[in-house]
Design a protein around this nucleic acid. Sequence first.
RNA 1: GGGCGGGUAGCUCAGUUGGUUAGAGCACUGCGUUGACAUCGCAGAGGUCGUAGGUUCGAGCCCUAUUCCGCCCACCA
Length: 942
Amino acid sequence: MTKQELPKAYDFRSTEPRIYEMWEKGGYFKPSNDPNKPGFDPAVKPFVIAIPPPNVTGELHLGHAMFVSVEDLMTRYHRMKGIPSLWVPGSDHAGIATQLMVERHLLQTEEVTREELGREEFVKRTWDWKKKYGSIITNQIRRLGASCDWDRERFTLDEGLSRAVREAFVRLYEKGLIYRGPRLINWSPGLKTAVSDLEVIYNEEEATLYYFKYVLAGRGGSPSARTVDEYIPVATIRPETILGDTAVAVHPEDERYKKFIGRTAIVPILNREIPVIADEYVSREFGTGALKITPGHDPNDYAIAQRHNLPVISVMDEAAKINENGGPYQGQDRFEAREKLWKDMQDAGLVIKTEKYVTTLPRTQRGGEIVEPMISTQWFVKIEPLAKAALKAVKDGRIQIVPERFEKVYFNWLENIKDWCISRQLWWGHRIPVWYCENGHMTTGRADPTQCSTCGSTDIHQDEDVLDTWFSSGLWPFSTLGWPEETPDYKYFYPTSYMETGYDILFFWVARMIMMGLEFTGEEPFHTVYLHGTVRDQFGRRMSKTTGNGIDPLWVLDGAPAEALPDYARKQYPQGLPAMGTDALRFTLLTAGTPGNDLNLNLEKVESNRNFANKLWNGGRFVLAAIDSLGASPLPLGEGARRRPPKGESAGEGDFTLADSWIWARLQELVRNVERLFQSFQYGEAGRQIQEFFWSDFADWYVEIAKQELAAGGARAYRAADTLTRVLDYSLRLLHPFTPFVTEELWGHLRRAVKENEVLSYLTVDWPEALIVAGWPMPRAGEGWEASKVADFSLIQEIVRSIRNLRAERNVSPAKRIPATIVSKEKHGLIKEQSDMIAALAGLETSQLSILSSLKEKPQDSAALVVGSIEIYLPLAGMLGLADERARLDKELTETQAQIERLEKLLGSDFANKAPAAVIEKERARLKAFKDTAGKITAQLK
RNA sequence: GGGCGGGUAGCUCAGUUGGUUAGAGCACUGCGUUGACAUCGCAGAGGUCGUAGGUUCGAGCCCUAUUCCGCCCACCA
C-alpha cells in the first residue's frame, strides 16, 4: 500500500485547474439525459438555468462571482440528486458599451473614428475585437468552477439568436405590437442615440433656478408688447428651452393669474406669441405658480400640450445644439445658449432673479451626460398587453419570485409601464429588419426582402437603427435553446427552471424575459426567479472605478500585491492580499449573506473560509491516513454512484460506539436540515450548518475520539475508520455545491484509498439525502433512539468540558494526565462504558480513574465539579488551594440558584397552563438538573 | 411623494412556523505545537437585539408609532 504523501496545507493553486479540466474533459457538465443522444428519456424532468449573460466587454467582477457561485450551487445540487441538469452559458453583445469600447480602442490605436471607417468596416472590427477578447470573461467564469455545458455556449449576435430576434420582431410587428413614430424620447446627445426610460439615471444635483418675466401682449394681441408692463413670473432650470415654449400655463383657480388666462404672452427675444392656458397640473404653491410649456423638450409639458392641442417645437439637433427654430442662438450648444439667452434677457429687463436649487437631473447610464428629452422618430413595443400577461403569471403563482417582497416591486413597475423604445442609433447590434421604399412604405419579413411589399418598388433600403440589447436578452431562455426551431433541446429543456440574477436587473431583464417568453412560447420561461443582492465593499459602499474601492475576484483567488489594492484593503494587508482560492471566495459569497440583500464582502471572512477549506483538507488527510493504517482490508466505500447498503449493515446498532451513533444522528439531522433549507432557497444557512457540523462535531469531537479507537486496532479501528470515511464522504457531498474543488480533490483520494474507481466525480454521486432517508448506515433501533444517543453524548461532552474548564482555570498543563473520581448513580452505566473516551478527551489518567455509583467519603484535597447529578473529583495537588476552591463553588451555587429561581417562577406562572407540554417538560427537566447541581454543590460546601 | 430593506458583541454578519441562558467569523485574554491541521487546538471575556408602546403564559422574531442609514420607483417648473 502506498503511503499518502499529501501536503499539509491544501494547495488550491495546482488543484483547481487540474480538477476543472478533468470535469470539462470528462463531460460531467453535460445533462445526464440529453435529447440529442441515444437512450434519451423524454419523461424525466430536467433542471435548467440560463446564465445571466455577462457582456463581452466585461472583466470579471464580484457580481459575476456571485451569480456563478449561486447558479453553480443550484446546478450541482440538482445534478447530484440525479436530475438531468443543464446550465447554458453565454454572453450578450452589450450594444452601447461594446461600441463605445471599440470606438475608444480604435481611436487610441489607429487614430481613426467610427465614421471614418464606415459602418461595415466598424462592425467587422467589432467582431474581431469580440473574437479576441470575448473569451476572457468565459475563461474567468471557468475559474470560478462554473459547471456550464460549454458546448451549448451562445452569443446574442450569433446566427441562431439573430434568427430568434428577427422572428420575435416580425411577429410583434405583424400583431401590431411594434410601431414606429415620432415621440418624445430620452436622447443621449453624447452617444447620439435614443435610450429607454430604464437607462436614464436620476441624481440629486445642485442647479440654478432662473426667474424671469413672461410679458403679456397688449389686449387685442398687439405685438408691441414690451410697452405693456404686465407679466407672469416664471421659473425654470433650463432657460434655453424658452426658445421652444408654446404656452404659459397657470392653475385655473389661481387668483393671481386667473385674469391672464386666454391672453397672449411674448416669448423673450424671439418675440413669438403664445397663449396663456389653464391646467390643473400646475401647482400654485411651487415656484411662481406659473409654468412655461416646452412640449418639444419636456415629458410633462408634452402631455399638457397634447391636452391643449399646442404645437410642438424642437429647438435642438441630435448633438443638442440649438437648431433653426432657435433664431439667433442657432448652432450654440444647449448650455452655451442658456447663458447667452439669459444675458440677452437681462439686457432686455426680463429677468427677476436666480437662486440655487437642488433637483434631480436625468443622466444617461452609459455616457453620463444630461439626457435631452426630444421628439424623435423611433420604434416602440406596445407593452401593455405583454405586461398584463406577465403580471398575471406572477399573480397566479405560475412564477415565484424569491425573496417574495420583490413581487411587489415587479407589480408596481408593470402596472405603470410605458411603451418600450427599442431602436438605438448604433451600429453594433441587431439591425431593425424593416425596409423602406421611396413611397414611404415599410416592408418586413423573416427573409430580407427584395422589393416593397406594398408598391413592389425594388428601390428599398433597410432601417439604419439597431435594436436595444435587452430585446435580444429578453429572448434568452428560449433563443439559446434553439427557438423558433422546435429543436430537441427546446422541446426538452424549455421552459427552464430557475432564473437567477441580481435584483438590479429585475426590470431590465427578468420582466422582459417573462413578457417575451409568454408572448412567443405561450409558457412561462421559468417557474422561479431567485434574486441575489449586490456585492459591496466591507463598508457597504458600491464598488466602482471612480471610488477606487473595487476588489477584483481574481485578486482574491490568486493574491495581489499591496499596491494593487484599494486603500482600506492595503491597510488590512500591507504585505499584499494572500491567494485564497475559488472555494474560499465561493463559500464566502454563498454563506455571508441572505437572498435579495446586499452583501458587504469582508476579506477577512474569505480568509477564514480559506482556513475552512484547509480544515477540510486536513480532515481528509486524517481519514486517509486512518484507512491507510488498517493495512490489508480496504473499506467498501460504496457501490459507486448508486450506492446501496451492503447486506446486513443496516440491521441494527451492532458494534457502533456511542460516538458513532451520535455523529450519525447529528449527520442525519444535518442532511434533513440542509435539504429543507435548499428547498426554501436558504443556501447561506445551509452552508453555515454544514460548516458547523464539520468543524465542531466531526473534527473537534469525533476525530479526537476516533484517534483512541484507531490506536486500539483490530475491529475497533476498522469500525472507526469506517465511520470516519463515510461521515467525511457525506459531509463533502453536502459541501460540494459550495466548495467544489477541495471536495472533488478529496473524493478522488478517498476513492483511491478504498480502491474504487468506477465513480470519477462528485458531480455524478448521490446527494446524501437519498442515502440518509433510506436510513443507511444509521442502524434503526426504534423511535427516540437518535435523541437518546445525542443526549447521552451531550452529557459526556459536558463532563469533559467541565474538567477542561477547571484545568484551564487552574493552569494544569494539557499534557499532564491527572487522576479523577466520577460519581453518579443514574448515569453510572453510561459513564463506566465511556470512561476511556472521557479519560482521553479530558486528559485523565486511566489507571487512576474511578467511576462510582455512590461515595462513602468525600475525597480529601479535591476540587469538586458538579454536572447535574454527577460529581467529579480532581485532586488539588499542583493546583490552587482549597479556599479558592470554595469561592469557585460559591459562585457556581449562586448562579445555579438564580437559574432555579427563574425556572420556578416560570413554572409557577400561567406558562405551566398554556405552553405546549413538550416545552413545559423541557423546562421541568432543566429545573431538575439545576436542582441536582445545587444540591451537590451545597453538600460539597458543608 | 410612494415603496422596500437594514439597525443584534469592538468590526462584518447569521438567527423562516414566537418557546424563555441570542450565535459565527475576525479582533481580544490565558494556556498549548514532534502524530490531520498554527491556514491549528483548549478555555475565556464581550450584547437591556435602534427607541417607545401593544398582543401573548412567553417577543430579536408578530402589531402600531417613531428615529437613523441604505436602496428602488415617480419626477413640480
